[in-house]
Amino acid sequence: MIYQDWLNEANSKTNEALVSCFNSQHLDGWSENHITTKVMESIESLGLEIDWTDKAQKVQWEGFKLKGTLETNFGDIAVIVKVWVTSDRFVEGVAFYEAKRQFFDDQWRPKGFSSIKQEQLANIISKTHASNVLLYDVDLEKKTARASAVPTALVDELARAKLAANSGRILHQYGDLWVKFLGNNLLGMHLDFRKESVDEIKKMSRGVDGPLIVINAAVAKMKILEPKIDNSFINKNLYERLTTPNEPEPAVKTEPRNDGPDGPRM
């Protein structure tokens, strides 16, 4: 498979997951936790070993998810990539995605990504410059779905001006499709290679307040090299592999969400 075909397929899988989550909103399906999990499961279905025919890089990756009751409320994704430059030398890099969903009014018009908090953005920026806000959205009128990523620094500046949380779909215009960001990360690009940032993201992945999802990857920069993956830093008491058999469906909420328990389907 060529790289562009993988991006197209990954984007299609992501959009299918978004529509499925939106259509199960009465089961709390339209929540960052649930959306992020289903989106990552859909990406994982494309394979954990990638050898794009038009790229020099070879990739191995695996996803981990916080266990059960330890789940975060924000659907965050930490990406940790070991980039092999020779057979025995590597550099580690990280990226971070803060997930936010679209909110709707009682006529199902987009209100904006209302859960964006400037304090939260500033905290993430302090840990790594390779951080982005991951935006989940569906457009009922056009019958489309979209997951885009916007650099956190841009969203932070808009939040300081009170323009980020309630701006409809304008934030999408400041970024690009999320799968493009993820594809670059898996290629060993657009990462933060500073040791303090790598250590900080790994530290987050070992604590109870860690991200919902950890993407652990290895990429070999040339075909003659093998990407050797290492998950020894993952706390197995807190995290489990992303794809597990018989994963339960989200529980039905007794209280309606602020955008309503019932609504149109895509």
Rank of each mutant, 00 (worst) to 15 (best):
V138I: 12
F113Q: 09
V85M: 06
E49Q: 14
M40A: 10
D5W: 04
V179W: 00
H26K: 05
E62K: 06
G112I: 03
E44V: 03
D199Q: 15
L140R: 07
H172M: 09
R101C: 04
R169A: 09
P227V: 05
L187W: 01
G188N: 12
G263F: 00
A159S: 14
L187P: 02
A95V: 04
Q25R: 14
G112L: 04
S12W: 03
T144H: 03
A130P: 01
I229G: 09
K162W: 12
T254H: 02
K13T: 04
A165T: 01
V39T: 09
A161F: 06
L66Q: 12
I234E: 08
L18H: 00
V81G: 12
F181S: 15
I80Q: 03
S114T: 08
V59S: 09
E32K: 01
F22M: 13
R257T: 09
S167D: 09
K202Q: 15
A220T: 08
A159C: 08
V198G: 15
L121K: 06
A122M: 15
E16L: 08
K236T: 11
D199C: 10
L7V: 15
L135S: 13
H129S: 09
A145P: 00
F103W: 08
K58L: 02
A99H: 06
D139C: 07
E226V: 08
Q25P: 02
F64K: 01
T37K: 13
H129Q: 06
Q57S: 13
D51E: 14
A10R: 06
S20N: 08
D51V: 15
D230E: 05
Y174A: 02
G207C: 05
Y239M: 12
E157S: 13
H129K: 11
T53L: 13
V81I: 15
E255F: 08
N216P: 00
S232R: 11
A218M: 05
G210N: 10
E157R: 08
R101G: 07
T152Q: 02
E71G: 12
L154N: 05
F96K: 06
D28F: 01
D262E: 10
I50E: 15
A251W: 05
I234L: 08
S114P: 11
T86Y: 00
E200R: 15
I43R: 04
G263D: 01
D176M: 09
Q4F: 03
S31H: 06
N73L: 10
G168N: 04
V19H: 00
D209I: 02
I77Q: 11
I215G: 11
D51A: 12
D5C: 13
G207S: 14
V138P: 00
A149W: 06
Q118S: 05
L46M: 10
Q118K: 05
I43K: 02
I77M: 06
K221P: 00
E119S: 10
S114R: 12
W108S: 02
V155Q: 01
N33S: 12
Q57N: 11
H129W: 10
L212H: 07
N184I: 01
F233P: 00
K236M: 14
R206A: 07
V81W: 02
G75E: 03
L186Q: 03
A149P: 12
A217T: 07
I2P: 13
G260I: 09
